[in-house]
Amino acid sequence: MKVKLGHIALQNPVIPASGTCGFGQEMSEWFDLNILGAIATKGTTLEARYGNALPRIAECPAGLINAIGLQNPGVDEVIAHEMPALRKLYRGPIIANISGFSIDEYAYVCERIDKESDAAILEVNISCPNVHNGGMAFGTSPEAAAEVTKAVKAVTNKPVFMKLSPNVTDIVSIARACVEAGADGLCLINTVLGMRIDIRRRKPVIANRYGGYSGPGVFPIALRMVNQVSKACPGIPIIGCGGVSNAEEVIEMMMAGASAVEIGAANLQNPQVCREIIEALPAVMREMRIDHLQDIIGIV
């Protein structure tokens, strides 16, 4: 089940996605985190953030909408407490997810995490749909995406993976801009901007009006985008993310071009789904006559 994500060896390709596993504490109550390929921590910003007003969650066909709004304790607290606490529970690679509201903020938080934590990869979120004047604003223009990439690359020697938004006309142009600006890898997709309305109250279900849709409903979209980007940017490692719920879909995502796969919404439905997927993978590999997962990356 071993795979290589850029220069980093993972014991398997399964990674709980940022925002669906906190900093590991709660998930560790459900299974031993050390079975994971890697873990992607909650999006971290310069300041502590409460996030958006409630309700932040809406049920949808084949998934959910969330508008958490990057609730996190801020980079100081993450470095001082969350990362050391996670390290006690998990010996494998930590992917630190970083968000910001300005290019300077991205660079500052990345530099702090680079110098003051043992994260293996920086996953730079330029695709959060739930905050204003930040997040997705940087991920919907190739120029802005490139600027963030350059600013972050200038302050770290760790691999930088840019996490891309599907809420764009041409994902390939954003991906190319990041790669040309020096990104070591890409992670896609973040959530798809969506909405639910409570027809009795005649109001949006989500207090923030719109939110990010994720779950099995976005899987075909994620798969297509991973495939397009892997064809357009050969050789660039991709973390595939979006609606993956079982071992078969992990393999499907890898065949589309992903070197590793993040599991997101499925964790909210079943906090031990990552363990179940990892346990199911060997049998599915045998059934599909796959000896090494590394061999199937991008074969379709």
Partner: peptide
């Protein structure tokens, strides 16, 4: 009572503000 996502403390969907800071209703 709040609308929840995961119910186990990982999604931050049900956080309320208390006099002691932000607290998850589910956790």
């Amino acid at each position: 009572e709040e609308r929840m996502g995961c119910g186990v403390g990982i999604c931050m969907g049900c956080t309320i503000e208390t006099k002691e800071g932000f607290r998850r209703v589910c956790k």
